[in-house]
Design a protein around this nucleic acid. Structure first.
Lengths: 339, 339
DNA sequence: ACAAATAATGTAAACGCTTACATTTAATAT
DNA sequence: ATATTAAATGTAAGCGTTTACATTATTTGT
């Protein structure tokens, strides 16, 4: 496997000259350049990337640390990031993690091992304490997805869960619903908490008493939505609408209503959140909040590249939050079209 | 940022001793080890990964080169690979590519730059000539997904598209269909070609003449399936069944049939391939071939790790193909349950 | 007590590249 | 023709680690 020394020998120049040709730095005579490029081609030479990183202290690699997440949520964000950073010659290295401890370890390895020029952390279940322990007081910028932005030096990109959940709950209220149930996502999940907070705020704004609020635990899976709905259908009087913290649970809830002999939205309205591709196809089609995951990924990638390329160290001292506005998609499952 | 020299100084030992502690190689007295670990903790030291790779010539990183692909297909395979290799302490670096030339360039950079211990290439549209030009005569093993296995040193993992397409076509024939149309996926796509070959083989086996075969071009998208179906519905006499090379096009085709005033499966049967999550929810639910993408990813990961860890250089001289058997999922859209 | 064997630790070269500074070559001004 | 300036290219240190070989410390056998 050829090295730069081999190329230099074949071309008849020094390794510095070869390096200048490879990296297009400094001045190199045209005839010299041609000879070097010919030698590179003849030897099928590619520079050793580790040696380059070690010497230049830049890797053109972005690290991404994710919890094991649902495939669709995971893939759309990562696709957005990949397609954005690839355009600028960056690559992505992935550390997926089974739990928060492993996630922090992987992040630390990426940052302190200086493998990456920037890091994306998707940490929907990390606590503030865990976030405070991440050693981010380094030159490497980090962008977080879906975590509360309370620490200097943190840049976070979050969905506008709160206001969108308010709007969705208001939408149900406007359709006449007063007995609206909420199905929670995974415990400790940031997105789920924010959606629940919006739901509560809307009820409060409407003067609907706490005693009327209904809720059930889920974990973002269709099966948990099915079971949560079964549980809610048993309460007397039963809810007239159900707001699930994500679409998979809403889809499960619709199945549970069908299996109980009732009809959506005639007997009970059901709405979800995130607008997975399936949601427009089920019967009835699901009313939901569209979450632009791909675009979110692109924004995360763009934000991180801006920080990587910036000479400023402001990202080390300023807390920054980017909130992505969301859009309600009204379909059949809320019953809006019945009236 | 601390280096191993700093740790050595604080601990009172040489860098070699610190390296022995970090890597758990050679003999180190227990008291020495404790002192070194304390120094590592105090300085929050992580080894520089590029320096380690340069020196040890191992990276514990697997490269993955993908074309821009549909999110679901892309994500399930990659999730399978990530979860498998993470268990063995490996990480994934992704080079996505917009076209075949960029894909080959990225693969060459990964292999010759010695960034990765192994490479996964998903290359459904590469020609054999392009494949032959990949410089894989190196120590780094490569596993290909969805390409024809005709070169020494190539290991490929492919779906059993051919036999599954035969079975699906036979299923339609058994339901009484003789005028069966086929909607192609993207031009030059390996999977699409193999599915079409299976469809042709089944017609041939049944003695159905070439003049009766019907086909339309698609590109794996729902919209292309819609348009291809519209085109097929105009032929007289029209097909009694449509076999789309993937589910997205089948879903589009079902929409086109509905929009034409006809009914699936009463007036025309429609089947697909790959069993995306949506397919069970649409009305009628789609008959399709289940493609275990996640498991395929895990098998690819496992196969590659075996080659990385193997002392044998057989992977450089032997062509190997792993064929994944598939399963037909009979739902409503083929009309089997009407009879 | 001393020699031999083993454990523990240190020295320093090397992995492959980049680049600051030095040297040589070529072009320009007088 | 010669001096000055600029272009082009070379030298070699160093990025941070690992590890073969060397040295020192410790343990064991006689």
């Amino acid at each position: 496997m050829a090295t730069i020394v081999d190329v230099a020998k074949l071309a008849g120049f020094s390794t510095a000259t070869v390096s200048r040709v490879i990296n297009e730095t400094g001045k190199v005579k045209i005839t010299t350049r041609r000879k070097v490029l010919n030698a590179i081609k003849e030897l099928n030479f590619s520079p050793n990337i580790s040696a380059q990183i070690l010497q230049s202290k830049q890797s053109k690699i972005i690290g991404m640390v994710f919890p094991d997440a649902s495939s669709i949520y995971f893939s759309e964000i990562i696709r957005g990031i990949i397609n954005l950073v690839n355009k600028y010659g960056f690559q992505i290295i992935i550390g997926s993690a089974h739990d928060e401890e492993e996630e922090l370890k992987t992040a630390s390895r990426f940052l302190n091992g200086r493998t990456v020029d920037g890091l994306v952390m998707m940490a929907p279940s990390l606590t503030n304490e865990e976030l405070f322990n991440i050693p981010i007081n380094h030159n490497t910028p980090v962008v977080f997805i879906s975590v509360p932005p309370e620490k200097a030096g943190m840049t976070t990109v979050v969905l506008d869960n709160f206001n969108s959940a308010i709007k969705m709950t208001q939408h149900l209220i406007k359709l006449g619903h007063r007995r609206i149930a909420f199905i929670h996502g995974s415990p400790h999940n940031y997105d789920s908490k924010r959606r629940y907070a919006g739901y509560l705020k809307a009820l409060e704004n409407e003067g609907i008493p706490e005693s009327l609020k209904l809720e059930a635990e889920g974990n973002f899976t269709e099966d948990s939505g099915y079971k949560a709905c079964q549980q809610l259908l048993k309460t007397e009087p039963r809810p007239t609408a159900i707001f699930a913290a994500n679409d998979a649970m809403a889809i499960g809830a619709i199945e549970a209503v069908k299996d109980s002999g009732l009809k959506v939205p005639d007997n009970i309205a059901i709405v979800g959140f995130d607008d997975i591709s399936t949601s427009q196809y089920i019967t009835p089609a699901l009313t939901t909040v569209r979450v632009p995951l791909y675009e979110m990924g692109q924004l995360v990638g763009k934000t991180l590249l801006q920080k990587i390329n910036s000479d400023s160290k402001e990202h080390l001292t300023v807390a920054e939050q980017i909130v992505i506005p969301l859009e309600i998609i009204v379909r059949e499952s809320c019953g809006a079209k019945l009236k």
